[in-house]
Design a protein around this nucleic acid. Structure first.
Lengths: 347, 347
DNA sequence: TTGTAGGCGTTATCAT
DNA sequence: ATGATAACGCCTACAA
């Protein structure tokens, strides 16, 4: 055991090893890898060569402990295989990458208990920031985040109150707008396929927008079905099927000539069901969705929907966190990414 | 500065604080949070109460440094918004969660350089294991992983050589099987919509399987188009469109009565294009895919495809890593999750 | 079952 | 520009 520095370690070369090899102090090595410009070129080259010779890679864990910064973001989403979030996650990933942050991610399956567990596990790893989906959180989660004092962004909504920062779009207004579009197109018997009523405020908002717009037009506003169970939201497959089943439910209960859905996947499911039943879209039945997922433009006929910029939401969330991290007392206002009615052949 | 323990810290209570509060030693506190059963119930209660009073949450970063274990897995995927991987990621997430591991994830955009960068960044954080997608990796990546000595699983393929462990299915055989199905159904003019030829071995295998099966049947095996660029693989939207464009390309160059696609998303795109052109599927044109993604069962007509268990691949990968971590010298053999031809209305 | 001592590999701070 | 020293908060190893 001539080399005192490899005792409990895992065989890795450490900065001390590199320092010895290069004939400089440990701190110089640290500087070379952290702020290369703060070291003279000559020394820097020597150290880098010594490091390469030893196969040295800085141990971030040690650095994190010493500096109190982890350069790690925790992302909490309801589901990983729901296309709803994928684009948004990619937006965060892209921003974080260029800002030299990494992220851990975990899903809650729409359960508040699981969300608390996830947040607790994350907080123990001392992330520099946390992204949550939506604004519905258990009290324990809220307390945990408050105690941790970690920057938090909530996504997909613009209606507070928020824990800290937020970015999203106006779900209520968007729902009114697409409903108004259906009415303007001449549809009078409009059904709605909703997500399970588990208190997700973004869907509560959409439903409220639909109802208010229908009422304002003097149309029936109670033609609503909710074919999914909470656990179905976990993956897209159920939502496709939910759209089909939802349409059947509407057909059984009401006389409808248009169906609006809480998400594009539901709407595509309903559209497929129309194809199976031989119902002409949009002549006999209009179909409209929410989200403008990639598939919306590809189905035939194309799906009328509300376009929201999920990628931008993710990008924003990451950017807001990093801004706050770099400038802890910055006041970071809500960012509304907007929405846009996209009319296609289905209405 | 009465309290010596909060100097550079971030305001968090530490085990030392809890120890003082509970009147025990620091080690007892550590044990309470790590192996509660190794502490007497009475002491444990006291410590937990003291911890709760101080809002204590163990700092994993410090624990990681001291123990040399991070309970963290690094997952490297080509893209985050490609449904190809989402199910597999969920499989890993579900296994890792119940095993008390967390994961970081990063995407490479199918670039070897980016993969190296990602792996390097991961390795610096000292994950206990790493999951890679596919078997095509740059030399630098390979060297890095070898030097790190971290357990690695490669996914989606069963044909080595592998860096370490692997789980996937037999792409070549699966492609032969679905091609044979088309031939058996009476199709003789079979076109293939391929992914970009960037050396992804799983797609190389599929193409080889198709060609060999066609040749064995004495059919033309060169009717192949590749409508996508490498960067298009990044998201599903391009693949839908690629399927449509690919079909048009095949129609322009060849006289085909069936189209097989390197993935379901391409196939669905081709199917939608048939709908737009008013081509009857499967009477005038058969369409087949690869993967049995969720949408395959939902389109009309349903898509004939190769079902693979992406969720299981993810689950396996995580399980294999954890096994190896717990038992470093264990020999963990390749796991083939198999595949299954699923025939639906499109052929 | 509980405690003591020492170290994990890096960074902050203060000197030089 | 470089170095010496003391943390960062926890865990391993060993002792009591």
């Amino acid at each position: 055991m001539a080399d005192n520095s490899i005792r409990r370690g895992m065989g890795w070369a450490t900065m001390a090893d590199v320092a010895r090899e290069a004939g400089v102090s440990l701190m110089t090595v640290s500087r070379v890898y952290k702020r290369p410009e703060s070291v003279s070129p000559r020394t820097r080259e020597n150290v880098l060569k010594a490091g390469a010779r030893l196969g040295f890679l800085p141990n971030s864990v040690a650095g994190n402990l010493a500096s109190g910064k982890t350069n790690m973001i925790g992302i909490v989403v309801p589901s990983l295989r729901n296309s709803n979030n994928a684009t948004s996650i990619q937006g965060m990933a892209d921003y974080l990458r260029q800002a030299s942050y990494h992220f851990m991610i975990a899903n809650t399956g729409y359960s508040l208990e699981d969300e608390t567990a996830v947040v607790k596990a994350f907080v123990q790893r001392r992330p520099d920031g946390i992204v949550l989906t939506g604004t519905r959180h258990g009290q324990e989660t809220v307390d945990l985040l408050k105690a941790a004092g970690v920057p938090v962004v909530e996504t997909w909504e613009t209606k507070g109150p928020f824990l800290d920062m937020a970015t999203g779009f106006r779900n209520y207004e968007a729902a009114r707008e697409i409903t108004a579009h259906l009415i303007e197109r001449g549809y009078r018997k409009i059904g709605y396929i909703d997500y399970p009523a588990i208190g997700l405020t973004r869907y509560v908002e959409r439903l409220a927008g639909l109802k208010d717009e229908l009422k304002a037009a003097g149309l029936p506003s109670g033609q609503i079905v909710s074919p999914l169970e909470a656990q179905d939201l976990y993956q897209d497959a159920s939502s496709f099927r939910g759209g089909a089943v939802g349409l059947q439910m509407l057909q059984g209960k009401y006389d409808i000539d248009a169906v609006l859905c809480a998400s594009d996947i539901l709407a595509v499911g309903a559209l497929f069901e129309c194809q199976r039943q031989g119902i002409a879209v949009p002549r006999q039945m209009a179909v409209a969705g929410f989200g403008d997922f990639e598939i919306a433009a590809e189905v035939h006929p194309g799906l009328t929907t509300i376009r929201t910029n999920g990628y931008q939401i993710g990008w924003n969330a990451a950017e807001m966190l990093v801004q706050r991290i770099l400038q802890p007392d910055a006041d970071i206002p809500l960012r509304d990414v907007g929405y846009e009615l996209v009319t296609r052949g289905s209405t």
